[in-house]
Write a protein that binds this DNA or RNA. Structure first.
Length: 638
RNA sequence: GCUGAUGUGGCUCAAUUGGCAGAGCAGCUGAUUUGUAAUCAGCAGGUUAACGGUUCAAGUCCGUUCAUCAGCUCCA
């Protein structure tokens, strides 16, 4: 007998060879029905997987990440099967499950159109009705190769050839279709009750732009029809939060053909930007940062020295002044180096934290531009920390804490990544190792979960990145902490140590918000345009009932302006309902309706963005509430 | 840059097989003086992204360019 430890800690004894599904059945037939895959000793497995030794087992349903994964992975096989039926000459590349559904990369001459997608979708539904079960089989390397070669599946051939020597090569078969796959998969196509092919895109084989571009079809499937409806609704809701849409509706910013990737900020958008920057300055002053500003354009010689010329030239804009070549800065660091070098430094000055809200220009590919999230001109909330080697860990931790504090203010959750040495980099392997270890060490000390992102560091050093989510769940890098031993060498930076000798400082390059533009975009989507009071462009709008109340409305607004509240009056000759609707759509947090009653009685009728009419409040109480909400950067209105 | 899609007043969208570019909102003018999500009427607003082509006739068909959208690649 073997002992199987379940997720809740209970231990059950079974005959060796019992399958995951049989364990589920033993617990309850209902559970068996919804179990899609298993997590056996930490590995994802099929439900038909026999268990031969003492194990821990977690039964995975659609609600579990692993269950979804198996379900969607099978969705991708179903998609491939349908495509192969309709277009037998199509060659299959890869078809993984992703966070929301799955895709399959396919090489075929026929260009997939929306009509063809519909046809494929119908074929998928038909296949489901045919009721195939899915079977796993293992093959030797040579048999597997022979199989895919015979089928002419050149991409599969390459995949197999690249598998490690000791890899178990498995195929999953459903009806006439079988595909190379590590699994796990669900066991029965019939549990797929809803299918939707979502979109179409080109994707390079192996993600390398030198390779052929394949057609990638994205889709999603669900065990219940209602889940698809709910999902599509969720996407509709997310569209309403899109910062590009809200930016227009709330008149915050705009983009024009005359300057693709160069955003224009409108008066209301500037209020939010300025509030963000004020907040940023306060936080940084408190934590011992000084602020600097470096020029937008600098001589190309500087960029040659910094390594940008060799490693970043494709992303830079150039111009000429008096026959000399100049570059528009894509990063703030070289300018910061010059400021450090302007005078000698003692170890007593370190760590030296120099912040800069620096506007940088980068030539991003035309197809990569995306609202405020990816632009060609943005303001980094940059800072360079010059320090002695033994200050590194403490400084990295301080930046991590700063980022956490700042994100908390907005109620963001974030993901952390550690990126290591890229191919196109400068500096010795030893330096890279030291730097990477230092960052990892700081993360471990803070007990932060992070994802490793090999080869994705900056050209001068490894980095810790902070990723925030947009309304569709796409993540964007915002904060970053990059450790750099190279710039100090290239710029011959030094400080005088307690021994009276010259020493090399190390540098942290870091941002917290990342780019003000991107952060603003995330902020808009995060709040759905309903900004907390401290950020709202208009915090209070006073709406007089009729003309005779204009003076009173004005006096109320003035009193609020006195204490620094952004208050305005809506004097338009429109009905009350119209002006309230307008204020609601502008997502103004507080509305004050003033008429005869208020002018006589003193108390004011307050309406809040989310809760509607909330009754009367005295002007003094209102002032106190506003001051409190703004000062504490409260995320709520009442 | 690559793949696919899209581009019509400030915004949201109409316009049969190629056959007189239209509506709502916003704007302006006037009436209306309003009590918690749209008062009524009138006026104005367009070289249909740009350029070229086919045609008696192009918003519609073809080509080129630009921009936008979904991805790929890249990245804050």
């Amino acid at each position: 007998m073997i002992d199987i430890t379940l997720k809740d800690g209970t231990v059950k004894s079974y005959e060796p060879g019992i399958t995951v599904l049989e364990v589920a059945k033993d617990i309850s037939p209902g559970l068996a029905k919804v179990t899609l895959a298993g997590e056996l000793n930490g590995n994802l497995v099929d439900i038909c997987q026999p268990i031969s030794e003492d194990s821990t087992l977690n039964l995975l349903k659609f609600e579990d990440e692993g269950g979804k994964h198996a379900f969607w992975h099978t969705g991708s096989h179903l998609l491939a099967q349908a495509v192969k039926r309709l277009y037998p000459q199509a060659l299959l590349a890869i078809g993984p499950a992703i966070d929301r559904g799955f895709y399959y990369d396919i090489d075929m001459d026929v260009i997939v159109t929306p009509e063809i997608m519909e046809k494929i979708e119908k074929e998928m539904a038909k296949i489901v009705k045919e009721g195939f079960v899915i079977e796993r089989s293992e093959m030797s390397r040579s048999d597997a190769l022979a199989k895919v070669t015979k089928e002419g599946e050149i991409y599969k051939e390459e995949l197999i050839e690249n598998l490690p020597e000791d890899a178990i090569i498995s195929f999953y078969t459903q009806g006439e279709f079988s595909d190379l796959c590590a699994g796990p998969h669900i066991s029965d196509l019939k549990s797929i009750k809803a299918i939707k092919l979502m979109s179409l895109a080109g994707a390079y084989w192996h993600g390398d732009e030198k390779n052929k571009m394949l057609q990638r079809i994205y889709g999603i499937t669900f065990p219940k029809k209602s889940q698809l409806t709910d999902y599509l609704e969720l996407l509709e809701e997310a569209k309403k939060r899109d910062h590009r849409k809200l930016g227009k509706e709330l008149d915050l910013f705009s983009l024009h053909e005359e300057g693709p990737g160069f955003p224009f900020f409108h008066p209301k958008g500037m209020i939010i930007r300025n509030e963000l920057e004020n907040f940023w300055r306060e936080e940084h002053q408190r934590r011992g940062y000084e602020e600097i500003r470096t020029p937008m354009m600098l001589n190309s010689e500087l960029w040659k020295r910094s390594g940008h010329w060799d490693h970043y030239k494709e992303n830079m804009y150039f111009t000429e002044i008096d026959d000399c070549e100049y570059a528009i800065k894509p990063m703030n660091c070289p300018g910061g180096m010059l400021i450090y070098k302007r005078k000698g430094h003692s170890y007593r000055d370190l760590p030296l934290r120099m912040g800069e809200l620096g506007s940088v220009h980068r030539h991003e590919l035309h197809g990569a531009l995306h609202g405020l999230m990816r632009v060609r001109n943005f303001t980094q909330d940059d800072a360079h920390i010059f320090m002695t080697p033994d200050q590194i860990k403490e400084e990295v931790i301080k930046v991590i804490d700063l980022a956490d504090d700042v994100y908390k203010i907005f109620g963001f959750t974030y993901r952390v990544e550690l990126s290591t040495k890229p191919e196109n980099s400068i500096g010795s392997d030893e330096d890279w190792e030291t730097a990477t270890d230092a960052l990892r060490d700081a993360l471990v000390t803070k007990g932060i979960d992070y994802r490793l992102n090999p080869g994705d560091g900056a050209f001068y050093g490894p980095k810790i990145d902070f990723h925030l989510e947009d309304s569709l769940g796409r993540t964007w890098q915002c904060g970053t902490i990059q450790l750099d031993f190279q710039m100090p060498e290239l710029f011959d930076l030094n400080y005088i140590g307690s021994d009276g000798e010259k020493h090399r400082p190390a540098i942290i390059h870091r941002t917290i918000l990342g780019s003000i533009e991107r952060f603003f975009g995330i902020l808009i989507e995060h709040f759905g345009g309903k900004f907390p009071v401290w950020l709202a462009p208009i915090q209070v709008i006073v709406i007089p009932v009729a003309d005779v109340h204009h003076d009173f409305a004005q006096s109320v607004a003035n009193e609020l302006k006195e204490i620094g509240v952004r208050a305005s009056c809506d004097y338009r000759d429109e009905k009350l309902g119209y002006r309230i609707r307008d204020a609601q759509m502008q997502k103004i947090p507080y509305m004050l309706v003033v008429g005869d009653k208020e002018a006589e009685g003193g108390d004011l009728a307050l309406r809040m963005r989310d809760t509607g009419d909330t009754g009367l409040i005295s002007l003094d109480d209102l002032k106190e509430k506003l001051i409190e909400k703004i000062k504490t950067k409260s995320l709520t209105l009442d």
